[in-house]
Amino acid sequence: CHSECLGNCSQPDDPTKCVACRNFYLDGRCVETCPPPYYHFQDWRCVNFSFCQDLHHKCKNSRRQGCHQYVIHNNKCIPECPSGYTMNSSNLLCTPCLGPCPKVCHLLEGEKTIDSVTSAQELRGCTVINGSLIINIRGGNNLAAELEANLGLIEEISGYLKIRRSYALVSLSFFRKLRLIRGETLEIGNYSFYALDNQNLRQLWDWSKHNLTITQGKLFFHYNPKLCLSEIHKMEEVSGTKGRQERNDIALKTNGDQASCENELLKFSYIRTSFDKILLRWEPYWPPDFRDLLGFMLFYKEAPYQNVTEFDGQDACGSNSWTVVDIDPPLRSNDPKSQNHPGWLMRGLKPWTQYAIFVKTLVTFSDERRTYGAKSDIIYVQTDATNPSVPLDPISVSNSSSQIILKWKPPSDPNGNITHYLVFWERQAEDSELFELDYCLKGLKLPSRTWSPPFESEDSQKHNQSEYEDSAGECCSCPKTDSQILKELEESSFRKTFEDYLHNVVFVPRKT
């Protein structure tokens, strides 16, 4: 048989008469490798580009789960590009990614509803959504962080984005990388972005840091009482949809009607710091009717980097990364020049730590249904340095008659930039024990000054392991946590139920 035959053949030295091919099969003959313009397919066939392209389009058009959109890589027609490569849609070739590779997620039936953290986790790592997304989240724990972890990498949506009755959302900033909504599939009414009845939605994105392009379709905003109209108009300008909307697409009466839409800028007039305090004062603000001013709200939190936005980490279910302080308005003076500047002394802060701070007014709604208010920009203030805590785990070892090696770990709280350490030492008198000992005694162990690591005695271990207080009263049991108490109650309830079950099964009433 021919060298490319495997198993047997019907005619000697003829690659077209093989029972099976050793390498690849091409047009009725066995070959060692697939010549151009053919590609290896499933490690035994040679196919042309049209064959591989037909497989790709067949799966793409069917949208069946589990099928493969075949691509070409290293002269092979394979189910998908290997790690580190992405497909070129024009020629199906796998090309190296520039940075992290995109991950295209194809949605069944063309859309997916995100109504819980669990459903959001199914899209973790996706960068391109081939379909439409509907966000409908009523509640949950730590929602802002969970949504950002699972949806934060999405850069492109081919269909539309719909935010509907998501009472738990305060902001859409968890879509931190969303840059493009194509609108290839539109919501009824030709809408590519749809926001309806979101009672706590206050911000779409921080438009000073976020760009969003909507290729096709219109915007729809109705019944978002805490979303200011200025935020919607800003989205029109940034996304390129200005002029597409009709009169009733953006409701003037049901958007922002319960919001404090600040239209003035508060400026800080005085800032002073110490290692654990920050004193702030800002310019006074009074609405047209000074009785509408209820006070100020001061927001602050630790910020290692200057990239904080107002609604980071917030949701309507209680999660809030900001510390909020309510401040009463100052006494009002008739003389504008003698107006008191409101302020606040922030206490209990960490030394040498940068804080993000902003302040906003708290006002009631005027009778004319106009909203007044003022808010400052987010500023960054760093507390002063102070003395560091003591170095940890000092170790001293003498390696000769004239040297001592000293080692330690950095302090747990540096409280500033540590530039150097101060080492103090003092000579001590020799131990009298060394002169009084009889060095001729056998088995004498000389006193040693070398360091030995501390260890816990058996008594201390027994005390720590004991669940009861000892007789001397030195140790006591740790208080039980809520989960331990709940577990004990469940076990007790189970024992009672099981005992009742045994009584009912074992003891049967005697027939009379």
Rank of each mutant, 00 (worst) to 15 (best):
G140Y: 12
D292N: 03
A145M: 09
N255G: 02
Y285W: 12
S171G: 13
I214W: 04
N136F: 03
L345R: 05
G189I: 01
T213C: 13
N141K: 09
S319P: 14
N334Q: 12
L293G: 01
I214V: 14
Y223V: 04
D289C: 04
V104L: 05
D289R: 05
D328F: 08
N141E: 07
G110S: 10
L107N: 11
L345A: 02
D206K: 14
L186G: 12
A385L: 12
A259K: 09
N224H: 11
T353W: 05
Y223P: 03
F299L: 12
Y191L: 10
N248F: 09
A144Y: 07
E264S: 09
R347M: 05
C105Q: 07
M297N: 14
I405G: 07
L161H: 01
R369V: 08
S274C: 12
G373K: 03
F175H: 03
Y300K: 06
H106M: 11
S338C: 06
I129M: 03
Q199Y: 04
Q382C: 12
Y285S: 03
K267F: 13
P394I: 03
V359T: 05
K177G: 04
C261L: 03
Q258V: 05
P287N: 00
P351Y: 08
G139K: 07
A374Q: 02
V104R: 04
A195F: 05
I327T: 06
L153Q: 10
N334T: 12
P391N: 00
N142C: 15
I157A: 00
L279Q: 08
G373E: 07
K360S: 01
F221L: 09
Y270S: 14
N224V: 03
H341R: 10
H210A: 09
S319I: 13
N307Y: 02
S376W: 01
I129K: 00
L153N: 14
S132F: 00
L147M: 11
H210V: 11
G131A: 02
A144T: 03
E122F: 10
F193C: 03
G318R: 12
L201Y: 01
W352M: 06
E283P: 02
T353K: 03
R247W: 11
S192A: 08
P330Q: 11
S319A: 06
T215P: 13
S338V: 13
L107G: 08
L266P: 03
G189R: 10
T323V: 11
D335K: 11
D257S: 05
I214H: 04
H106T: 11
D257L: 09
N334K: 12
Y300G: 03
S158W: 14
T127R: 14
G217S: 09
W344L: 12
W352S: 14
E237R: 11
T353A: 08
H341E: 12
L153C: 14
R291G: 01
Y167S: 02
L186R: 13
W352D: 14
D249Q: 04
